[in-house]
Amino acid sequence: MNAAKSLTNGASPAERRAGWKRYKASMRYGLYVIFHPFDGFWDLVHEQRGSLPAAHTYLFLFLLTYVLRLMLTNFQFITAPIQYINVYEQCGSLLFPFLVLCVSNWALSTLFDGKGRFRDIYMAMCYALVPYILIQLPLILVSNMISFDEAAYYQVLGSVSVIWCVFLVFVGLMQVHDYTPGKTVIFLFFTVFGALVILFLILVFFSLLSDAIGFFVSLYREIAFRLY
């Protein structure tokens, strides 16, 4: 939080320098976390080694990697109809479920006796995306240097990046909430269920809202017709 404040314009140069230093340290900490997940995620939240700006940066880099991958990967390895792809839509379709899962996780952590706050959960989830960025960005370059027969290497590395991320999410949530592995599995299951409930509520809300607006619009029209 200090880092975020000290990066704003109101801060003195010294504060700003300190904030910048802390931001860099928390970014570099992402590299430590992915190789030492158990220690890493514990210290990330309990020892204040991570920071929100770094988490935002990683999330942004993740989205950037995803979009670049769609656009620049050699056509031998990806079937992406470039002419139909909408970058904002792609980002939204990643960001929205990500945030819904975070919210659902946070909401359910109360029931499951979790220790994590919302910003801890968000930070852990963002730091867990680092392997995807580190592997997929170079893979874009590699895809343009290898041929279709060598696709196996490309696919193995791609799978590793995803599996690594999933593992980190698991460990991250476990450490943030101070759970046992078994409890984390059940908790993740309920998190997905909770996300579905949230989506359902959003749908219901918007359909009711449009009904309500429709009612007032027709009421207004009715009155307008009667009066004039």
Partner: peptide
């Protein structure tokens, strides 16, 4: 080959090219 989205042949040509 790229125009026709032919991956196998593109890969083969690319190997020689490389």
């Amino acid at each position: 080959f790229k125009m026709a989205h032919d991956r196998q042949n593109y890969g083969r040509a690319y190997r020689y090219y490389r």
